[in-house]
């Protein structure tokens, strides 16, 4: 308020910086859009303007029998949705126990959880491989090479990833609320389902969305776990366009990226209010 006199130059400086950052943010997005309508299959062919606009990269994704693109999208969506919903629910259960219930070793369990969480689980890949191979031997549908097996591995990390975050939010809900409910004779599970679940809606939305995006982006485990072309996720499938399998086919990659990104970005922007609130709330709790 006291800077009114300086406002004009400062405001110009702000706009320049902001516009510079916006151009920086949009440049790759523009490039990928440009490449997706480029007929040569290269990444924007070293030019910043489109010469001709063609849609063959898009049609190729849906017509080429060797590219089961829709299958990849489906695999990713199924995997990411299930991991997000089940993972957040499991994390929510755990965080409720950590936030509200008294039990022996609570602090140490929380410490241990944080510690296990920082072990990147794909470095245990060889171990995971051995375990899932044995499971495959008995139950072929949930072992190595299957979406369900990969889901189980993802879910193994969900408690560590979500419990801490959600606990932070649950801690901010006043104790008086559940104490009053307890006096009314409510059990722990009633308090959880009837009081906490509705109150945590914003943070549930944020964590579910972030878990969904995180799973959608996961590359390492999926690329080693899912060998068959049909079983791949979008991330692994699209990488193969610019990796070795198909040669560097940037056009198809760009088109696939645009198709895969549109629903995610739409979802993200439409839930922006929740995300900004959730992320900002997380920042002031430390």
């Amino acid at each position: 308020m006291s800077h009114v006199s300086k406002r004009t130059p400062s405001s110009a400086w702000r706009h320049i910086f902001i516009i510079f950052m916006i151009l920086f943010a949009l440049f790759p997005i523009y490039t990928v859009l440009l490449s997706s309508v480029n007929g040569t299959g290269a990444l924007a062919t070293g030019s910043l303007w489109p010469h001709t606009i063609v849609f063959k990269n898009y049609t190729k994704l849906f017509n080429d029998a060797s590219i089961p693109f829709l299958r990849w999208v489906l695999n990713s969506v199924v995997l990411a949705s299930l991991n997000a919903v089940i993972g957040v629910l499991v994390g929510l259960f755990a965080s409720y126990a950590f936030s509200r219930l008294k039990f022996k070793g609570r602090k140490n369990s929380l410490r241990l959880l944080l510690l296990i969480q920082v072990f990147p689980n794909f470095l245990a890949l060889a171990a995971i491989y051995v375990i899932m191979e044995r499971i495959y031997h008995v139950f072929p549908s949930i072992g190595i090479g299957t979406t369900w097996g990969l889901l189980l591995v993802y879910l193994g990390g969900s408690m560590g990833a979500n419990a801490w975050l959600l606990k932070g939010f649950l801690d901010s809900i006043p104790m008086e609320l559940d104490e009053a409910a307890k006096i009314d004779g409510a059990s722990a599970s009633q308090i959880f389902w009837l009081i906490f679940l509705p109150l945590t809606k914003p943070i549930i939305v944020v964590t579910t969305l972030l878990t969904f995006i995180g799973t959608f982006n996961e590359f390492v485990l999926a690329s080693i776990f899912l060998q068959e072309v049909k079983a791949r996720t979008v991330a692994v499938g699209l990488e193969s366009f610019v990796g070795s399998d198909f040669g560097a086919n940037w056009g198809a990659f760009a088109a696939g990226s645009v198709i895969a990104a549109i629903p995610l970005v739409t979802l993200f922007l439409s839930l922006q209010r929740y995300i900004v609130g959730g992320v900002a709330a997380g920042s002031v709790k430390g």
């Binding site: 790759p28 997005i29 490039t31 490449s35 070293g46 590359f219 990226s257 895969a260 990104a261 995610l264």
Partner: peptide, 29 residues
């Protein structure tokens, strides 16, 4: 703000690969 958080909304594996192509010596933008 909506424009600025776009990079956060884009699937990151995709963005990284796009950048890899953009930084290519011969055909990168």
């Amino acid at each position: 703000r909506a424009l600025l958080i776009l990079p956060y909304a884009m699937p990151s594996f995709m963005s990284i690969l796009i950048w890899a192509g953009m930084l290519n010596r011969d055909y990168g933008s």
